[in-house]
């Protein structure tokens, strides 16, 4: 670490932290859009009929769309001057990453939403509440996936880390830097997962207690 420090840009830490906020912003946008689209699809799918079949097909397609390819598709296949009702359609780099994550988040939310609606209909509102930890898990997966933005020049944490790594003289220094990056992403992720597990355990206990109380 003492060897690494002289090569570190003095602004590295602040740039890296700013980059991480970009990762969280991307994940938040992707999840918000995914929630809107995913819940609509879940509602259509549970409703059955032609709309249900269409929703299931769309969810299947979205599950099969690789995020990285969708990101490049959004950046390159939409003409720069394209607009819809006067609003520009061509996304910025950051929006392209967020939008590329929407197929995953919407499909995930749709699956979790279908399960939640079925739990509700079965008379288990607590079971339906499992939707919340599932969505939280999706958020952390989205934060990790938003690192793909480095490939298209989005100034997120991985891009900052890789830029700094290019200036490191040895492989050992680069590996130490990468380890810092893994820890920086890992700590909030593992903390988040631990909270989800605790929430799920709590919900399960409450559900068990309710079942015991209602059982004659």
């Amino acid at each position: 670490m003492t060897r690494l420090l002289p090569h570190l840009d003095p602004d590295f830490l602040s740039q890296f932290l700013t980059g991480m906020t970009v990762n969280f912003e991307i994940a938040a946008v992707a999840l918000a859009l995914g929630l809107a689209l995913g819940l609509l699809l879940a509602w259509a799918r549970v409703g059955g009929g032609a709309a249900g079949v269409a929703a299931a097909s769309i969810i299947g397609l979205m599950r099969a769309a690789p995020t990285f390819v969708v990101m490049f598709f959004l950046l390159n296949a939409i003409p720069r001057n394209a607009n819809l009702f006067g609003l520009p359609l061509a996304p910025s780099g950051m929006m392209a990453v967020a939008a590329s994550l929407v197929p995953y988040s919407a499909a995930y939310v749709a699956d979790a939403g279908v399960a939640a609606i079925r739990q509700l209909r079965a008379g288990s509102p607590l079971g339906a509440l499992l939707f919340l930890p599932n969505v939280t898990r999706a958020f952390f997966v989205l934060v990790m996936s938003s690192g793909a933005g480095a490939a298209i020049g989005v100034n997120e944490a991985i891009a900052v880390l890789l830029r700094q790594a290019e200036l490191m003289p040895t492989l050992g220094d680069r590996l130490i830097l990468f380890a810092i990056g893994v820890a920086a992403f890992g700590i909030p992720l593992q903390t988040g997962f631990a909270l989800i597990r605790a929430l799920q355990r709590r919900l399960s206990r409450v559900m068990m207690r309710q079942q015991e109380e209602t059982t004659p």
């Binding site: 990790m144 996936s145 938003s146 690192g147 793909a148 480095a150 490939a151 991985i158 880390l161 890789l162 790594a165 492989l171 680069r174 590996l175 990468f178 990056g181 893994v182 820890a183 992403f185 890992g186 700590i187 992720l189 593992q190």
Partner: peptide
């Protein structure tokens, strides 16, 4: 846990290095 904590892009870069 380490692999789960590393964004896939970073894991790829580490493997490449």
């Amino acid at each position: 846990v380490t692999l789960q904590s590393s964004p896939i892009v970073l894991t790829l870069v580490i493997a490449s290095a």
